[in-house]
């Protein structure tokens, strides 16, 4: 064999090894792995927003064993935009109930924060959506995450193909970040729950209204990278009235009568997807997240409160997601 051939073979083998290792290398840093052995998810019934939600929420938090005392809590509801007679947002009564519950459980501070995805007039959004009176009654401050001081943070996984994203200081400095989504279908992602809700953390002042930067890097990929980098320590899902069909804005109200709680966002989102009569294994971002961020399989979830079969309420989906029903 000539020297040139040896060199050629060497280069080929070397490149092959690099390519092989790239293909098999996980797309997340070891520090991003946080899949617990078992995840507790509590499903509690709540027939309407007129119920004593604070009591139910307090019970849900306790059932999951969350330690709240002396913690600085940041609540992140879903507040995308407002339209009369629709159910786009986490209901303000649920946000009010959660504020009250955390204060009763000894939180040092509770703040509400959101970076609305479509509108810059957050003042009008809070007033029109009915959230403002709840904030005023409890003297709770609101942080517009689109405008907060921001810091560049290295991503803990690399599905978007970028190294870092900016995140608001309010999020990075909170002891407990609580993701509070609405139980909704999503016309691009299948379902939007606690993980997709973290799109609202990304500052609009940098990434725009809508946060199109994330769409260009792939919605599923962005959901995973954001969640691997910033952790929602607890999840409370407003499933009292969800949204089915062409969500997250133009879908139809779907009463489901539940609040769902847990400290593993993957497990909570998977449970909610099952409540909606859909298969979480077929939702791309949940499938990826189930490899390292939390428990996707039912065997990894300890269901407390109500069983899924007792509250299951099949959601309509758009044609593109028909396969989620099987």
């Amino acid at each position: 064999m000539h020297r040139r051939d040896i060199l050629k073979t060497g280069i080929t083998l070397g490149l092959g090894t690099i390519a092989g290792s790239c293909a098999s290398a996980p797309k997340w840093k070891p520090s991003a792995y946080r899949k617990p052995t078992i995840s507790r998810v509590a499903i509690l019934k709540a027939a309407s927003y007129e119920e004593n939600l604070t009591e139910i929420i307090q019970q849900g938090i306790k059932l999951c064993g969350l330690v709240v005392r002396d913690k600085r809590v940041l609540l992140k509801p879903n507040l995308v935009e407002y339209e009369k007679d629709t159910v786009i947002n986490t209901n303000p009564a649920v946000v009010g109930g959660v504020i009250e519950a955390f204060l009763r459980l000894g939180a040092r501070e509770v703040r509400v924060a959101e970076g609305p995805g479509h509108r810059r007039d957050t003042d009008g959004l809070l007033l029109a959506s009915g959230l403002l009176p709840y904030l005023e009654d409890t003297r709770t401050s609101f942080v517009d995450l689109n405008l907060d001081d921001m810091r560049r943070v290295a991503l803990q996984s690399s599905f978007m193909g970028i190294e870092a994203l900016f995140f608001p200081e309010a999020v990075l400095s909170a002891d407990l970040l609580v993701s509070m989504p609405k139980l909704k279908t999503h016309h691009w992602a299948g379902m939007t729950l606690s993980m997709k809700n973290l799109f609202g953390l990304v500052p609009g002042v940098k990434y725009g209204w809508p946060k199109n930067f994330l769409h260009w890097h792939g919605i599923d990929q962005s959901i995973v990278d954001i969640n691997s980098t910033v952790r929602a320590h607890f999840v409370i899902v407003d499933g009292i009235i969800g949204m089915e069909g062409n969500g997250p804005i133009q879908g139809k109200p779907k009463p489901s009568g539940v609040l769902v709680f847990g400290d593993d966002p993957v497990a909570v989102d998977a449970t909610c997807t099952r409540i909606a009569g859909l298969n979480p294994e077929k939702i791309k971002y949940l499938k990826i997240a189930g490899e390292f961020l939390g428990n996707l399989a039912e065997s990894g979830v300890q269901q407390i409160g109500e069983g899924i079969s007792k509250v299951e309420s099949p959601f309509e989906v758009i044609e593109a997601f028909r396969s989620l029903k099987t």
């Binding site: 810059r120 609009g204 940098k206 990434y207 725009g208 209204w209 809508p210 199109n212 930067f213 260009w216």
Partner: peptide, 13 residues
Amino acid sequence: WSWNPKTARWVEP
């Protein structure tokens, strides 16, 4: 004009 380089164009920017 876009909010962020190399992404879609929007009304406000």
